[in-house]
């Protein structure tokens, strides 16, 4: 359980980190507004992603879903406005 917990936490944290990291690039409005938007989404999503990764362990569906979400947000952070 502890290893699952650690892995789920790392995956969810990485994913929301990519959200706050990339929001100034893909968020609407000024950099300040986009950063705020990213933070709002990150705080809202972190519990959900953490619990999805930790709770859905059958065939690693939870961790795979969270990893995929993280990859999407990482790619979004590469977008040039």
């Amino acid at each position: 359980m502890t290893a699952r917990l650690a892995l789920s936490f790392i995956l969810a944290w990485t994913c929301v980190h990519f959200i706050t990291l990339g929001s100034p690039r893909w968020g609407a409005g000024s950099r300040h507004d986009a950063t705020i938007l990213g933070q709002m989404i990150a705080v809202l999503l972190f519990p959900a992603l953490f619990l999805i990764a930790f709770g859905n362990w059958r065939k690693f569906s939870g961790p795979i879903f969270v990893s995929s979400t993280g990859v999407v947000f990482y790619l979004l952070s590469l977008v040039q406005k």
Partner: peptide, 18 residues
Amino acid sequence: AYTGTFLHTRSVLPPESY
């Protein structure tokens, strides 16, 4: 919890890489 965490999100999730 949501509003309180949001107030200082920058301290744990900054908009730049660690």
